[in-house]
Structure formats: structure tokens, C-alpha cells
Design a protein around this nucleic acid. Structure first.
Lengths: 217, 217
DNA sequence: GAGATATGAATGAACG
DNA sequence: CGTTCATTCATATCTC
């Protein structure tokens, strides 16, 4: 009977899997090839059942929604010139970063140690010693303490307001950190630790602890 | 402390905003473009803070749930269609309550039924003696027997194809019925029962039995 | 004020 | 790739 077990369950990525996927995406690999997809899948399998299609769809959706959000944001910016007061409003979520939902630092290694995926990119063992800094476009800050001249970034999912323009890295993050763009390029700063260009909304950075060697990844 | 409790509050549309959204949806614009979404958003902002994403989600959910309801309704109606000949020519002022299937005949007034909610209208007791005619925009006709020149309407959840243009009411529904728009206005027709303007996709009508007095609601 | 319902938000899957 | 569908999660609202 009727045994056609409906059982249609769609894939629900585990937190660890999401973290891996986000890390990969934010590292710049936004559109993995078939081969890379398979590698990623095998990495994810250490944390639960997952298929290549799931990985494929995940990246497809991630790209799509990332762009859509940017588009919507621009559109709303255009008409935002009208009403000052309440300005940016509600809606929700930027993206991921389930702040405080039992996430820990960064950890990426853990399981599939051997043969880490991303051979082509500066991806890392030093990952577990850095902080992930995500500069969300500040689209939806319904809750916030937003104030002009500042932007909200997320460090490992925890929000923090920083100046939009130049600022002192040591002042904000502590003297032991450098900022590295997700591309691998360090953010230019003076020897006094002043970043002139500020952080770019929508980009991802890493807070790199000076003690770690970046050269040999 | 410090508990910057994210305090994620989700958008709660104001009654005026819901009315606007419902009006737009019922006028046939069930899937606004991005540009239209932005315009709608700015319209809604006159009554409270709202973002593009809210509008986007609202329409997406509205479509989805409208469809789901139609599906469920049809499904539960199927069971009831066992005997009775063809249909609706019998003004079912009598309800046959389908044993505990949750749904019964028409009743629209009941709870916060979906399409109604415009409380300001002359909404009446004679409702339970009429047939609910919903003109869904025929968006999703994957299943259907759709053919050009016709549109699908739902009478108490049962689909029926009618011409898009003028048609003879008596011919389609039987001589004892009039069509009344959900606003309470009868649909204009000649004394021969010909409706010239046809039915408007997305609108809701009632098949009104001529024996019932419309005057005193 | 606990449970049921309504609904905003999110997202996996898939279509065109 | 943009868009849409279906399902699920989370929370607001309602009811007893």
C-alpha cells in the first residue's frame, strides 16, 4: 500500500556544511566546476548525506540570491532619496550568519583533512586561526543602531559597527590583526595600521592574526 | 547585557497596506516585476515602514497560498462530486456538509476567509445562498485543459472554462442566475442575459440565484 | 498563556 | 542565469 512512502525530504544542510559552503563561496569560488563540486560534496559528506546536485543547487541559489539582493538594494536606493526619515526599513536578513546559534569560531578543517579542496586558491590551513569578516551591505538593519558614517560588519556572525571611511585597524580590532580580502590580498594600510579605503560593502575579508604565516599556505 | 538581542522583528503590514496589496493582487497583478515592486513599496510606505523584500515575499506567499488553497479545495471537493449530476445548476443553498472534511459548501463570510476581508463592503447573509465564483488568473495551468479564448474560473472550487469575452450567462450557468461582483455590484448584462465585458481575471464574483432578494442585506 | 492558526521569511529544487 | 514553486521555519495573532 500506498506505500509510496512520500518521504520526500529535501536536503537540509548541517551547520557545519553551511559553514563550509559559505567559506568556499566567500573565498571567491562562487561557481565551482563539476570536478570541484564533487570534491566539495565529498568534503560535506563528512557531516551528513549530501549529493552533487545539492551542492550544485546551493551555489546556484547562493549566486542568484546574492545578486538579487544587490539589485533590490540598488532599486530601493534609487527611490530612497525621497523619504529621509525612516529610511531603510525592515525586511530582514541579509544572509547567513545565524549569530549566536551555537556557532563556534571558524574551523574548517576537522574531517577531510587530506587533500583539501581548493587547490587553486589561497585556501588554508590558517583558516582556523582567522576571523571571518563579512561586510553585509547594510540593507536590512531594522533592528539597528545604524548611524550615518558607519557600516555594520559581521565577524563570525557577530555584528559590529565600523566607520565607512578610513579607520585604524588596531583601534578597532586590536593590534595583532591584519585585514585580508577574501581574494587573498591584504587590505592596504599604512605602517600605523590605518586603512584608507575602508571596507567595501558586500565584500568579505579575514581578520588575520599577525602570528600566522600567510606566505606558505 | 550587551545583549544586543538582535530583536528580529518581522514586518507586520498595517491594515491599509494589506488592503492595498490585496487590491493589487485581486486586480490581476499577481506577480509584479521588480520595478512594480518598488513602486508598490513606495505606495505602502505612506502607511508605515516596509522594504522591497517584504513586498516581494508578500506576493510570493500570496500566490503560493492562493494556489495551495485552490488545490486543497478542489481536492476536498472531488470527494463530494460523486453523485450529483453536473453541478452547479442547483443552487445549493442547502449544504451538504461533507462529513468532517473540514470544508463545506460555500460560506465565505465565516472566518478570515481568504478573499474577503474587505469589511467595509455590504457583505451579507445572502452569501450562503450563492455560489462563489473565483476567477483565478490562470497562471498555473500546467494541469489544465486550457485553451485560448477561454479562461478558467472556479465555482466553489470546481474549475470551469468560460469564454474570455462576452457570453450568455444563462447558457453557461443556467437561466436562474445572475452574476454579482464581489463589490456587490451586479455584472451588467442585457435583458437576454448576455454579459459583454466578460469576467475579469483575478476578480471574485457570486452566482446569485434570482429568487434571493439582494436589496435587503 | 498554552495551543492552534495565520503569515512573514528563508531556502532547496527546479523551470524556461 | 533569472525566475518560480514547494516546503519549512519562525513569529505574530487569535482563541479558549
Amino acid at each position: 500500500m500506498s506505500s509510496s512512502e512520500p518521504e520526500r525530504t529535501r536536503w537540509s544542510p548541517k551547520p557545519e556544511q553551511i559553514l563550509i559552503l559559505e567559506s568556499i563561496f566567500n573565498s571567491g569560488m562562487v561557481n565551482p566546476t563539476k570536478t570541484e563540486t564533487v570534491k566539495i560534496r565529498s568534503l560535506l559528506e563528512n557531516y551528513g548525506p549530501v549529493g552533487d546536485a545539492n551542492v550544485f543547487y546551493w551555489f546556484q541559489n547562493r549566486r542568484s540570491r546574492s545578486r538579487r539582493r544587490q539589485r533590490l538594494m540598488q532599486a530601493s536606493m534609487v527611490s530612497a532619496s525621497a523619504n529621509q526619515s525612516s529610511a531603510m526599513t525592515t525586511a530582514s536578513s541579509t544572509d547567513n550568519s545565524p549569530a549566536g546559534s551555537g556557532f563556534s569560531p571558524v574551523l574548517l578543517n576537522g574531517a577531510g583533512e587530506d587533500d583539501v579542496l581548493l587547490t587553486s586558491r589561497p585556501w588554508p590551513s590558517f583558516l582556523d586561526s582567522v576571523q571571518h569578516v563579512s561586510c553585509e551591505p547594510l540593507l536590512y538593519n531594522s533592528t539597528c543602531h545604524y548611524q550615518p558614517g558607519f557600516m555594520t560588519i559581521f565577524i563570525n556572525g557577530i555584528p559590529l559597527d565600523v566607520p565607512r571611511g578610513p579607520f585604524d585597524v588596531g583601534d578597532i580590532f586590536g593590534p595583532q590583526f591584519l585585514l585580508v580580502h577574501s581574494s587573498g590580498e591584504p587590505v592596504p594600510m599604512t605602517e600605523l595600521g590605518i586603512v584608507f579605503q575602508g571596507l567595501h560593502a558586500g565584500e568579505n575579508y579575514f581578520l588575520w592574526h599577525r602570528g600566522v604565516d600567510l606566505g606558505d599556505v
